[in-house]
Nucleic acid binder design. Sequence first.
DNA 1: CTGGATCCCACACGATACTG
DNA 2: CAGTATCGTGTGGGATCCAG
Lengths: 131, 131
Amino acid sequence: MSPPQPLRTGDAYNPDCPTRHILDRIGDKWAVLVLLTLKDGPVRFNDLRRRIGAISQKMLSQTLKSLERDGLVSRAAFPTVPVTVEYRLTPLAGGLIGILDQVTQWAEDHVGAIMASRRAHDGALTDAMAA
Amino acid sequence: MSPPQPLRTGDAYNPDCPTRHILDRIGDKWAVLVLLTLKDGPVRFNDLRRRIGAISQKMLSQTLKSLERDGLVSRAAFPTVPVTVEYRLTPLAGGLIGILDQVTQWAEDHVGAIMASRRAHDGALTDAMAA
DNA sequence: CTGGATCCCACACGATACTG
DNA sequence: CAGTATCGTGTGGGATCCAG
């Protein structure tokens, strides 16, 4: 079960491998939150801000720009009186959302076990300290 | 497809929600890489280091500790002459690995489209500058 | 071999102020 | 409303040295 196996196919270990770029994007907490928020349809800038709540406008703007650059989000501006801008997922992002949903589902299903493990671990440490 | 729907069940937006903790863990680049490396069986500390390559021993140690605390990885030390330590996935991590595999698979499948989007985007910018 | 402890700095991120 | 620009800082994380 642990053969030599020098390096896997796509090999995400090599920083050169573009797969790492995607991993980094998934690793971006704000990006994931934004994608999830856009799941049910187009949302305007300040709406996104309010929905996510904790995000600063700088990070939101920055996150949206990088997501747009990656072709995961599209931007549409309407020349209304105060300008209106809508963000929505692109078809490309569709498949990713499905996976992200699985992640959040898994998280909801197992967060109990994980928190329990943390308490057990921390408790063991505390006990060791007391001993 | 875009009803009011004030807030989703688990609501990952609220920092209080423990689901966010899991998201943050997934958001940890090194943690994901470590989990993926452990997928095919137990691996020793320095083996992990070499396989991942770019990681510093500090981050590896730190990542392993937090994964162990979360009950996703288990540690086994053998009192051999130079001490030997093996890390392996716990059953709890099993389901997560499946999802992580989907992520890497998706990444491999769509990295081309994403890189193309980036080039198109950057090219458009460059053109705008030149104009 | 498996880590822990320290030093240190780049940079991610938040807060604030300003523009179209 | 939808951003951009600037500044200050907290800290993630690398490099290095040391210990069991």
